[in-house]
Design a protein around this nucleic acid. Structure first.
Lengths: 164, 164
DNA sequence: GAGGCGATCGTCGGGATATTTT
DNA sequence: ACAAAATATCCCGACGATCGCC
């Protein structure tokens, strides 16, 4: 696997062409470029425990979060990183919900249907949407629940949710 | 700039479509995907701390600004000096934007496209354009954000933006 | 586009807090 | 009735761009 840099807009364009949950950038690009698909393994196996959280830690350390100036931006960044860290686990975990509202869905409409003025937003680099009309406490809560369901260590969960 | 992973073969495919030396992955992909090209900014290294701000201080001390009789002229002069002081950092920093409008671009059209009556102006001695239809407070704001992103010291930022 | 500038006021987004539900 | 959790209204500050003034 090689790493390349693409600008924000292009990144979003690629992400928006995701056909199924967990699809990799390579797969999407190959389809868009009409190249012969090379079987990329459906990356479903749980990440080896030692590795889990690599990307997340990098985000914390890089100060990416501290740079954002609103809770909502930090929230969205975290979700985006979490998704990329382990799409399969994210998919599993994302069915957490509140009393009436659902927090994640693969379409804006689904979120709008389950509550009033939920202000859904697309999670960058993923096929998912989240609810956004919540206070900061609940945003922390959502991240905590999500990460717990994805199997992250307690300490890391704490660090991440406090950084919102 | 976002980072994505692509498999070896795809990477080679992209690389093989390079049209000119130094072309970025984004540019190549945009061409292959037939997307509107967006100039990719040359990646900048932070300026050596000691030198940063030389030209800016000179401008302040020379009273060049005080001589101008409108905020907009002082604004344009400052931007021009900032660009020359560190073109690479300026390029990095110039992606700051408002709710709808973008503040800087390398073409008039890009600015016109992102807002109504933005009154773009070319920044002297640079390939950039700025938005101009703002009150003085926002002009100060833009300069403050820009300089902060370029890594100038707080005190200097303050002096400059107050001089508008 | 072509008169230039920018204050003023309308609009929008963030998220704390009041309200509702369990 | 009380507390805790969840919802979503609504206030405040930030941003946009019209339009009045020179």
């Amino acid at each position: 696997m090689k790493t390349i840099e693409v600008d924000e807009e292009l990144y979003r364009y690629i992400a928006s062409n995701t056909r199924h949950i967990g699809e990799s950038a390579s797969d999407i690009l190959r389809r868009l470029l009409k190249l012969e698909s090379q079987k990329t393994e459906p990356s479903a196996e749980p990440a080896p425990a030692g590795v889990q959280g690599e990307g997340v830690r990098r985000m914390l350390d890089a100060g990416t979060l501290a740079a954002q100036d609103s809770a909502i931006e930090r929230f969205m960044t975290i979700l985006s990183v979490l998704y990329r860290d382990n799409p399969a686990a994210f998919a599993q975990a994302s069915d957490i919900k509140g009393r009436k509202r659902i927090y994640f869905a693969d379409s804006e409409a689904a979120l709008l249907a389950a509550g009033n003025t939920t202000k859904p937003r697309a999670i960058d680099g993923s096929p998912y949407w989240v609810i956004t009309n919540t206070n900061t406490g609940r945003k922390r809560n959502i991240v905590t629940q999500l990460m717990a369901a994805m199997g992250y260590a307690h300490g890391l969960i704490e660090r991440v949710s406090q950084s919102i």
